[in-house]
Computed example of a mutant assay.
Amino acid sequence: MFNFLFKFLFKIAGWKLVGQFPKHIKKSILIVAPHAQSVDFPVGIGARAAIGVKMGFLGKKELFEGLFGWMFYWLGGYPVDRSSNNQVVKAVTTLYNSKEELHLVIAPEGTRKDVDKLKMGFYFIAKNADIPIVMIGFDYAIKGIVISEPFYTTNDSHADLKQIALFFDKIGGYKKTWVSNYLKY
C-alpha cells in the first residue's frame, strides 16, 4: 500500500528513473549523490518504490531519535554514530555477510554540505563484503534518478574513485567539489 503511494507521489512530482537497477544482484551498496537538500530523502523513498527492490539505508543516528525516530526505522533505516570511530565499516560488512540479500543506500558525502572528498566507508564496505557499488545520481536538472551498472572495486582505489567521480560528473544540477577533486587523479 505505502510503496504504491510513494511510487505515485514520485511520478506525480515529475521524477523518472534513468537506467535499470540490477535486480539480479542480491547484495549491493548504493551510493546516492549529490546529497544537497532535505528533499533528497522523500525523492529517494519514491525512487526506491519505483525501482521495486527492498532497500535499507544508513543514516545519522540523530534521525532515529525523538518524535519521528520510529519512522526512519520503519522505512528501513540503520542508524550510524558519526561522532567517533565506531567501526561502522566492520559492523556493516558483518551485516552484509549475515544476510542472503541486502541493498543499503548511503550518501557518500556524509552530509548535505559541500565537501572536498567523500567519506570512504562505502568503498571499504563494498571491498570487504565483496559486493558491487551501484551509483545513483539525483539529477535535478532533468528530475531523473540516474542508475549506474554495478561497479566492483579493484586494487586501485585512485582509479576506482575516478570512475565514481566520472559517473557523478555527468549528473546535472547541483555539483559538489569532491567530483572535480577526484577527477584530478
Rank of each mutant, 00 (worst) to 15 (best):
M1G: 14
N3E: 13
F4S: 11
L5W: 15
L5G: 06
F6H: 08
K7C: 04
L9C: 10
K11T: 08
K11M: 02
G14D: 09
L17V: 10
L17K: 12
F21R: 02
P22N: 09
K23E: 12
I25E: 13
I25C: 01
I25V: 09
K26R: 14
K27M: 09
L30T: 07
I31L: 03
P34G: 10
A36K: 12
Q37M: 05
V43T: 11
I45E: 06
I45K: 09
G46C: 06
A47F: 11
R48A: 14
R48N: 12
A49W: 12
I51N: 08
I51T: 09
G52L: 07
G52F: 07
K54H: 11
M55V: 08
G56R: 10
K60F: 10
K61Y: 12
F64T: 06
F64W: 09
E65Y: 12
L67N: 13
G69A: 09
G69F: 08
G69Q: 05
M71V: 14
F72D: 11
G76Q: 14
Y78H: 10
D81K: 12
N86M: 10
Q87R: 14
V88G: 05
V89F: 14
V92L: 08
T93P: 07
T93C: 11
T93R: 11
L95I: 04
L95Q: 08
S98E: 15
S98F: 03
S98D: 15
K99G: 01
E101V: 05
E101H: 12
A107G: 06
A107S: 14
E109H: 10
E109L: 05
G110L: 04
R112W: 06
K113A: 14
D114M: 11
D114I: 02
D114Y: 02
V115Y: 06
V115S: 04
K117F: 05
L118A: 09
K119L: 06
M120C: 00
M120E: 14
M120G: 11
Y123K: 02
I125C: 04
K127H: 09
I131A: 04
P132V: 08
P132D: 13
I133A: 11
V134E: 07
V134I: 15
Y140T: 15
A141E: 13
I142N: 14
I142Q: 14
F151P: 01
S157R: 15
S157D: 10
H158P: 00
A159S: 13
D160L: 05
Q163Y: 05
Q163G: 13
I164A: 01
A165W: 03
L166Y: 08
F167T: 03
D169T: 03
K170I: 00
I171M: 04
G172P: 00
G173V: 06
K175G: 01
K175P: 02
T177D: 00
T177F: 00
T177W: 00
V179D: 00
S180M: 04
N181P: 00
N181V: 00
K184V: 04
Y185H: 05
